[in-house]
Design a protein around this nucleic acid. Structure first.
Lengths: 146, 146
DNA sequence: ACAGACTAGTAAGGTGCCTAACAAAACTGA
DNA sequence: TCAGTTTTGTTAGGCACCTTACTAGTCTGT
């Protein structure tokens, strides 16, 4: 096994391929993959602080800020000040956003079907566990070297 | 298992964590992860056409074009016209590039060690196979729907 | 020979991810 | 109380990926 494979290059290829499929599904709706997740969460969980969204999505504040401004520009979500803590902003899906959401296909469902339908459940579980543990070790290493 | 996990969200997390570690290693040298791969290939394989590089790296022409121009800007590689085919450009590592390369750590080695050292080899093999097969199904799906 | 198809690289514009630096608000402790 | 710290969101700049559209060579078939 090459070092490259040892380092998990298939995780990268899988990720890129799944993101490509997701984006091809969402392109007609002029939405990116993370924009879809934000809409998903706002449609199903109701208004959320940006701060909490960064935790749900596990991305940086600055990254979310850009995603949010794209969605606001498209008129799909609204940003409102939080009256209790004026630093924070509450995000809410707009009527236009909810209307669009109702017409969207579920790209996650599609990816799960295309990529893993009929695959041995135990092997999928092993794959998820190995990747989860490897990720944890990478994160611990980062913490330790700080 | 949630749909999200079914869709391979751990592949994404693993990829992002490994890229983050790679970039933190390379940051002191002002290099990105794909820039490192290009230097690696040019240092070990000698001069290469950009066209062939896109195949080795499995990225788009336009993507490579940006990576190459960053490396040229930093003076680490050179772009020379191919005399046989004037559309093509041949990439070559410069003296400065070779000098820098000699001082670089191997981030792939580090990632393989941190993420997978001591992990059951068979389970790693299963993970690679499952991801490879899933990736292939995603690519086939894309081809089929074109 | 030459029109039309193909290919290599670039440019422009979009997404998503990051870090670093900043302003404003909120919190904390002496 | 009020200076110092922490938190939230934005901005700026960088990387890596994509698609679409373009130019300039090269190749093909008649």
């Amino acid at each position: 096994m090459s070092n490259l494979e040892a380092a998990g290059s298939w995780a990268k290829k899988y990720f890129l391929a799944s993101r490509a499929l997701m984006e091809s599904v969402l392109r007609p709706y002029d939405l990116g993959s993370t924009q879809w997740y934000v809409l998903y969460l706002l449609a199903n969980e109701g208004p959320v602080n940006q701060r909490n969204l960064t935790r749900m999505l596990e991305i940086e504040r600055a990254t979310l800020s850009a995603v949010v401004s794209a969605l606001v520009r498209k008129g799909l979500i609204e940003q409102m000040p939080d009256l209790d803590d004026q630093r924070q902003k509450v995000l809410q899906i707009t009527t236009a956003g909810r209307k669009l959401w109702a017409t969207l296909p579920d790209p996650i469902e599609l990816i799960a079907t295309v990529a893993f339908n009929g695959v041995d459940a135990e092997e999928i579980a092993t794959t998820n566990r190995i990747l989860r543990e490897a990720t944890q070790r990478l994160i611990n290493h980062k913490r330790g070297s700080k």
